[in-house]
Design a protein around this nucleic acid. Structure first.
Lengths: 119, 119
DNA sequence: CATTATAATTAGAATAATTCTAAAAGGGAG
DNA sequence: CTCCCTTTTAGAATTATTCTAATTATAATG
């Protein structure tokens, strides 16, 4: 694993911010000023394929990257705000219904965030 | 609701193919040869906001549109193939944990599709 | 039915996100 | 050090989507 890859993984793992490739690039640049965007995209793609990071595809936003550690997401239907939450693990249930081949799952719950509910 | 919007909704509701805006445009063009892409995007956005259609954001693919009728999805981690499945409704469970404000949820289960498992 | 207002559509430019390409640089094995 | 393989780089290219302004269609009103 290269210096860049290590650092990107570190940022993803330590932050709760669900950063886009662009945001990760800006963050990485703070410690590695010479890096370019393509490198960040390359590394993210590789690490995603290797199963080292999660990728979140959201409506109306570029892809976001997240730590692997199992957790679920709340998405505000109005403003798109994304936050973590933990619902009980459903792998067992899913396997019982679908067979043993399940790799992982993504649960996104849509709601109105406190801010958007006010308005 | 305009002629175009009606027809787009019809296509989305009747097909199981999780079409992209581009595919819907091509399909719509068969009966409405004068329509342009922007119209399809406009209509899809409007109908999405109104809750008439679902939008699926997938890794490595443009957004796809789907009928509202509740169902879940299987996604092949390797080739991205998308298919429908129905898992039990979790709205109640989710509300019990998170409160009453839940609008909907999206469950995507990753696996290896039959084709990709062979190889 | 003519007139005005409102909304939808169009064409095409513009933007945003991501990938591609070919060349240059880096790092380890012998 | 030299060779080979991988990563990075720069920038062009591609893809998906939105925006803008002009035009057309639809609906509402006198």
């Amino acid at each position: 694993m290269t210096r860049y890859a290590k650092r990107i993984l570190e940022i993803v793992d330590q932050s709760d911010e669900h950063m886009t490739a662009e945001q990760l690039y800006l963050e990485l640049k703070k410690t590695e000023p010479k890096v370019v965007q393509a490198t960040v995209y390359n590394n993210l793609n590789t690490m995603y394929k290797e199963g080292l990071i999660r990728k979140l595809s959201l409506e109306g936003s570029p892809d976001r990257y997240d730590k692997i550690k199992k957790h679920d997401h709340l998405v505000c239907k109005k403003c798109g705000a994304l936050s973590d939450m933990t619902f009980r693990d459903m792998t067992g249930d899913l396997e019982r219904q679908l067979g043993e081949g399940i790799l992982s799952y993504d649960l996104k719950v849509f709601y109105l965030c406190p801010k958007c509910r006010e308005i």
